[in-house]
Protein backbone atom coordinates (compact mmCIF):
# COMPACT_ATOMS: atom_id res chain seq x y z
CA UNK A 1 0.00 0.00 0.00
CA UNK A 2 1.42 3.34 -1.01
CA UNK A 3 1.95 5.95 1.68
CA UNK A 4 3.76 8.65 -0.25
CA UNK A 5 1.89 11.33 -2.11
CA UNK A 6 3.55 13.21 -4.93
CA UNK A 7 0.67 14.67 -6.88
CA UNK A 8 -1.13 12.90 -9.71
CA UNK A 9 -1.32 13.31 -13.45
CA UNK A 10 -4.22 15.71 -13.01
CA UNK A 11 -3.06 17.49 -9.89
CA UNK A 12 0.14 19.47 -9.46
CA UNK A 13 1.29 19.47 -5.87
CA UNK A 14 3.94 21.87 -4.69
CA UNK A 15 6.79 20.69 -2.51
CA UNK A 16 5.32 22.04 0.70
CA UNK A 17 1.94 20.50 -0.04
CA UNK A 18 3.50 17.10 -0.61
CA UNK A 19 5.32 17.42 2.69
CA UNK A 20 2.11 18.34 4.47
CA UNK A 21 0.21 15.39 3.02
CA UNK A 22 2.99 12.91 3.69
CA UNK A 23 3.41 14.11 7.25
CA UNK A 24 -0.33 13.82 7.85
CA UNK A 25 -0.56 10.35 6.29
CA UNK A 26 2.47 8.91 8.04
CA UNK A 27 1.87 10.44 11.44
CA UNK A 28 -1.89 9.78 11.27
CA UNK A 29 -2.97 13.32 12.01
CA UNK A 30 -5.86 15.15 10.36
CA UNK A 31 -4.69 17.68 7.80
CA UNK A 32 -6.38 21.05 7.85
CA UNK A 33 -6.19 22.80 4.47
CA UNK A 34 -6.95 26.45 3.96
CA UNK A 35 -6.55 28.72 0.97
CA UNK A 36 -8.30 31.03 -1.42
CA UNK A 37 -11.45 29.58 -2.95
CA UNK A 38 -10.65 27.76 -6.18
CA UNK A 39 -7.14 26.64 -5.31
CA UNK A 40 -8.11 22.99 -5.20
CA UNK A 41 -8.67 22.26 -1.52
CA UNK A 42 -11.51 19.83 -2.03
CA UNK A 43 -9.80 18.30 -5.00
CA UNK A 44 -6.78 17.53 -2.87
CA UNK A 45 -8.63 14.84 -0.93
CA UNK A 46 -9.90 13.27 -4.13
CA UNK A 47 -6.40 13.22 -5.53
CA UNK A 48 -4.90 11.75 -2.37
CA UNK A 49 -7.48 8.99 -2.53
CA UNK A 50 -6.65 8.41 -6.17
CA UNK A 51 -2.89 8.53 -5.75
CA UNK A 52 -2.79 6.27 -2.71
CA UNK A 53 -5.58 4.08 -4.03
CA UNK A 54 -7.96 4.45 -1.09
CA UNK A 55 -11.71 4.88 -0.98
CA UNK A 56 -12.87 8.46 -0.46
CA UNK A 57 -15.62 9.28 2.01
CA UNK A 58 -17.04 12.73 1.54
CA UNK A 59 -18.65 14.61 4.39
CA UNK A 60 -19.91 17.96 3.31
CA UNK A 61 -20.57 20.37 6.16
CA UNK A 62 -23.44 22.83 6.10
CA UNK A 63 -24.42 25.50 8.56
CA UNK A 64 -26.94 23.09 10.05
CA UNK A 65 -24.55 20.14 10.38
CA UNK A 66 -24.00 18.66 13.80
CA UNK A 67 -21.03 16.58 14.87
CA UNK A 68 -23.39 13.85 16.01
CA UNK A 69 -24.64 13.43 12.43
CA UNK A 70 -21.17 12.31 11.45
CA UNK A 71 -21.27 9.53 14.04
CA UNK A 72 -24.81 8.25 13.94
CA UNK A 73 -28.39 9.36 14.21
CA UNK A 74 -31.24 7.75 16.05
CA UNK A 75 -34.30 7.94 13.84
CA UNK A 76 -36.86 8.32 16.58
CA UNK A 77 -39.63 9.43 14.26
CA UNK A 78 -39.43 6.25 12.17
CA UNK A 79 -39.53 4.15 15.32
CA UNK A 80 -42.48 6.09 16.61
CA UNK A 81 -44.33 5.56 13.35
CA UNK A 82 -43.52 1.85 13.33
CA UNK A 83 -44.75 1.52 16.87
CA UNK A 84 -48.08 3.05 15.88
CA UNK A 85 -48.32 0.59 13.00
CA UNK A 86 -47.33 -2.35 15.16
CA UNK A 87 -44.25 -3.23 13.11
CA UNK A 88 -42.06 -5.95 14.62
CA UNK A 89 -38.89 -4.04 13.79
CA UNK A 90 -39.67 -1.65 16.58
CA UNK A 91 -38.34 -3.98 19.27
CA UNK A 92 -34.77 -3.70 18.12
CA UNK A 93 -33.45 -0.20 18.54
CA UNK A 94 -30.50 -1.00 16.28
CA UNK A 95 -32.88 -0.86 13.31
CA UNK A 96 -33.24 2.85 13.83
CA UNK A 97 -29.58 3.77 14.20
CA UNK A 98 -28.46 5.45 11.00
CA UNK A 99 -24.72 5.42 10.43
CA UNK A 100 -22.91 8.69 9.78
CA UNK A 101 -19.90 9.38 7.59
CA UNK A 102 -17.40 8.98 10.38
CA UNK A 103 -18.81 5.59 11.24
CA UNK A 104 -18.56 4.62 7.58
CA UNK A 105 -14.93 5.68 7.60
CA UNK A 106 -14.23 3.72 10.80
CA UNK A 107 -15.90 0.66 9.34
CA UNK A 108 -14.04 0.67 6.05
CA UNK A 109 -11.98 -2.43 5.33
CA UNK A 110 -9.34 -0.40 3.53
CA UNK A 111 -7.86 2.68 5.15
CA UNK A 112 -10.07 5.40 3.66
CA UNK A 113 -9.57 9.10 2.98
CA UNK A 114 -12.20 11.07 4.85
CA UNK A 115 -12.86 14.56 3.56
CA UNK A 116 -14.57 16.93 5.97
CA UNK A 117 -15.36 19.74 3.59
CA UNK A 118 -15.80 23.36 4.67
CA UNK A 119 -15.74 22.78 8.39
CA UNK A 120 -15.98 26.52 9.01
CA UNK A 121 -19.55 26.53 7.73
CA UNK A 122 -20.79 24.65 10.76
CA UNK A 123 -21.59 25.89 14.21
CA UNK A 124 -18.68 27.11 16.31
CA UNK A 125 -18.98 24.08 18.59
CA UNK A 126 -18.77 21.58 15.77
CA UNK A 127 -14.99 21.02 15.76
CA UNK A 128 -14.93 20.77 19.55
CA UNK A 129 -17.56 18.04 19.45
CA UNK A 130 -15.30 15.95 17.24
CA UNK A 131 -12.13 16.24 19.33
CA UNK A 132 -12.35 12.94 21.13
CA UNK A 133 -13.47 11.02 18.07
CA UNK A 134 -10.59 12.35 15.97
CA UNK A 135 -8.09 11.76 18.75
CA UNK A 136 -9.02 8.25 19.79
CA UNK A 137 -10.77 7.20 16.60
CA UNK A 138 -13.63 5.67 18.52
CA UNK A 139 -17.03 6.61 19.85
CA UNK A 140 -19.86 5.14 21.83
CA UNK A 141 -23.42 4.48 20.68
CA UNK A 142 -25.57 4.97 23.77
CA UNK A 143 -28.74 3.53 22.30
CA UNK A 144 -27.20 0.13 21.64
CA UNK A 145 -24.38 0.30 24.21
CA UNK A 146 -21.88 -0.40 21.46
CA UNK A 147 -18.37 0.91 21.06
CA UNK A 148 -17.35 1.73 17.51
CA UNK A 149 -13.61 1.48 16.91
CA UNK A 150 -11.84 2.45 13.72
CA UNK A 151 -10.47 -0.55 11.86
CA UNK A 152 -7.82 1.70 10.35
CA UNK A 153 -7.15 5.30 11.26
CA UNK A 154 -8.62 7.12 8.27
CA UNK A 155 -6.58 9.77 6.48
CA UNK A 156 -8.56 12.87 7.33
CA UNK A 157 -8.50 15.99 5.20
CA UNK A 158 -10.37 19.01 6.52
CA UNK A 159 -10.93 22.11 4.44
CA UNK A 160 -11.80 25.56 5.67
CA UNK A 161 -12.53 28.84 3.94
CA UNK A 162 -11.57 30.86 6.97
CA UNK A 163 -15.05 32.09 7.67
CA UNK A 164 -14.64 31.21 11.33
CA UNK A 165 -11.71 30.86 13.63
CA UNK A 166 -11.34 27.25 14.64
CA UNK A 167 -10.84 26.44 18.32
CA UNK A 168 -7.26 26.02 19.53
CA UNK A 169 -7.82 22.57 20.99
CA UNK A 170 -8.93 21.40 17.58
CA UNK A 171 -6.03 23.03 15.78
CA UNK A 172 -3.55 21.35 18.13
CA UNK A 173 -4.62 17.97 16.83
CA UNK A 174 -4.31 18.88 13.19
CA UNK A 175 -1.50 19.58 10.80
CA UNK A 176 -2.01 22.76 8.92
CA UNK A 177 -1.34 23.70 5.35
CA UNK A 178 -2.19 26.89 3.50
CA UNK A 179 -2.48 26.46 -0.25
CA UNK A 180 -0.88 29.55 -1.63
CA UNK A 181 -2.01 30.95 -4.91
CA UNK A 182 0.26 29.30 -7.50
CA UNK A 183 3.00 31.38 -9.09
CA UNK A 184 3.37 31.62 -12.84
CA UNK A 185 5.58 28.56 -13.27
CA UNK A 186 3.30 26.34 -11.19
CA UNK A 187 0.28 27.72 -12.95
CA UNK A 188 1.81 26.82 -16.30
CA UNK A 189 2.28 23.26 -15.10
CA UNK A 190 -1.30 23.14 -13.85
CA UNK A 191 -2.73 24.37 -17.12
CA UNK A 192 -0.46 22.01 -18.98
CA UNK A 193 -1.89 19.08 -17.08
CA UNK A 194 -5.45 20.08 -17.92
CA UNK A 195 -4.93 21.19 -21.51
CA UNK A 196 -1.96 19.27 -22.83
CA UNK A 197 -2.49 20.42 -26.41
CA UNK A 198 -2.51 24.10 -25.62
CA UNK A 199 -0.13 26.22 -27.64
CA UNK A 200 2.71 27.60 -25.57
CA UNK A 201 2.23 31.16 -26.74
CA UNK A 202 -1.52 31.24 -26.21
CA UNK A 203 -0.92 29.93 -22.71
CA UNK A 204 1.68 32.57 -21.96
CA UNK A 205 -0.58 35.36 -23.20
CA UNK A 206 -3.56 34.03 -21.31
CA UNK A 207 -1.54 33.77 -18.11
CA UNK A 208 -0.28 37.30 -18.55
CA UNK A 209 -3.82 38.63 -18.87
CA UNK A 210 -4.87 36.52 -15.92
CA UNK A 211 -2.14 37.63 -13.55
CA UNK A 212 -2.63 41.25 -14.63
CA UNK A 213 -6.28 40.93 -13.80
CA UNK A 214 -5.47 39.57 -10.35
CA UNK A 215 -3.41 42.69 -9.72
CA UNK A 216 -6.37 45.01 -10.30
CA UNK A 217 -6.89 46.68 -6.93
CA UNK A 218 -10.21 46.48 -5.16
CA UNK A 219 -11.60 43.37 -6.80
CA UNK A 220 -14.14 41.69 -4.57
CA UNK A 221 -13.37 38.22 -5.80
CA UNK A 222 -10.04 37.68 -7.47
CA UNK A 223 -10.14 35.07 -10.23
CA UNK A 224 -8.56 31.82 -9.09
CA UNK A 225 -7.17 28.67 -10.65
CA UNK A 226 -10.55 27.12 -11.36
CA UNK A 227 -11.69 30.30 -13.10
CA UNK A 228 -8.55 30.35 -15.20
CA UNK A 229 -9.12 26.76 -16.29
CA UNK A 230 -12.73 27.54 -17.21
CA UNK A 231 -11.64 30.58 -19.14
CA UNK A 232 -9.02 28.68 -21.12
CA UNK A 233 -11.59 26.01 -21.88
CA UNK A 234 -13.87 28.73 -23.26
CA UNK A 235 -11.07 30.35 -25.23
CA UNK A 236 -10.34 27.03 -26.84
CA UNK A 237 -13.98 26.22 -27.51
CA UNK A 238 -14.55 29.60 -29.13
CA UNK A 239 -11.27 29.32 -30.96
CA UNK A 240 -10.21 32.83 -30.03
CA UNK A 241 -7.06 33.79 -31.90
CA UNK A 242 -3.97 34.58 -29.92
CA UNK A 243 -3.91 38.11 -31.27
CA UNK A 244 -7.12 38.92 -29.45
CA UNK A 245 -5.35 38.44 -26.14
CA UNK A 246 -2.37 40.43 -27.12
CA UNK A 247 -3.46 43.97 -27.79
CA UNK A 248 -0.92 46.58 -28.78
CA UNK A 249 -1.89 48.85 -25.95
CA UNK A 250 -2.04 46.72 -22.83
CA UNK A 251 -4.45 47.68 -20.06
CA UNK A 252 -6.81 49.33 -22.51
CA UNK A 253 -8.52 46.29 -23.93
CA UNK A 254 -11.07 44.09 -22.28
CA UNK A 255 -9.97 40.47 -22.61
CA UNK A 256 -12.39 38.28 -24.53
CA UNK A 257 -14.90 36.26 -22.50
CA UNK A 258 -13.92 38.03 -19.29
CA UNK A 259 -17.19 36.87 -17.77
CA UNK A 260 -15.52 33.58 -16.98
CA UNK A 261 -12.90 35.31 -14.86
CA UNK A 262 -14.92 37.95 -13.08
CA UNK A 263 -17.93 36.58 -11.27
CA UNK A 264 -19.15 39.70 -9.60
CA UNK A 265 -21.15 42.47 -11.21
CA UNK A 266 -19.33 45.15 -9.28
CA UNK A 267 -15.98 43.71 -10.29
CA UNK A 268 -16.92 43.80 -13.95
CA UNK A 269 -18.01 47.42 -13.59
CA UNK A 270 -14.84 48.33 -11.76
CA UNK A 271 -12.75 46.61 -14.36
CA UNK A 272 -14.51 48.33 -17.24
CA UNK A 273 -14.14 51.68 -15.54
CA UNK A 274 -10.42 51.10 -15.09
CA UNK A 275 -10.06 50.15 -18.73
CA UNK A 276 -11.98 53.24 -19.70
CA UNK A 277 -9.77 55.47 -17.56
CA UNK A 278 -6.64 53.88 -18.97
CA UNK A 279 -7.88 54.54 -22.47
CA UNK A 280 -8.59 58.15 -21.66
CA UNK A 281 -5.14 58.56 -20.15
CA UNK A 282 -3.54 56.91 -23.12
CA UNK A 283 -5.10 59.34 -25.50
Amino acid sequence: MKTRFAGTDTYIATEDLMMAVNAAVNLARPLLVKGEPGTGKTQLAEEIAKALDRPLIYWHIKSTSKAQQGLYEYDAVARLRDSQLGDARVHDIANYIVKGKLWDAFDSELQPVLLIDEIDKADIEFPNDLLLELDRMEFFVYETQQRVLAKHRPIIVITSNNEKELPDAFLRRCFFHYIRFPDKATMERIVDVHFPGLKKRLLRDALEVFFDLREVPGLKKKPSTSELLDWIKLLMAEDIPREALRSDAPRTAIPPLHGALLKNEQDVHLFERLIFMNRRDAR
Partner: peptide, 16 residues
Protein backbone atom coordinates in the same frame (compact mmCIF):
# COMPACT_ATOMS: atom_id res chain seq x y z
CA UNK B 1 16.91 22.28 4.83
CA UNK B 2 13.82 23.02 2.81
CA UNK B 3 12.09 19.81 3.81
CA UNK B 4 12.93 20.48 7.41
CA UNK B 5 11.42 23.94 7.07
CA UNK B 6 8.21 22.58 5.53
CA UNK B 7 7.88 19.94 8.22
CA UNK B 8 8.33 22.51 10.97
CA UNK B 9 5.74 24.74 9.39
CA UNK B 10 3.15 22.07 8.82
CA UNK B 11 3.41 20.76 12.38
CA UNK B 12 4.00 23.91 14.42
CA UNK B 13 1.98 26.65 12.77
CA UNK B 14 -1.79 26.44 12.62
CA UNK B 15 -2.78 29.66 10.94
CA UNK B 16 -1.50 31.35 7.81
Amino acid sequence: AEEFYYLCRVTLVKDE
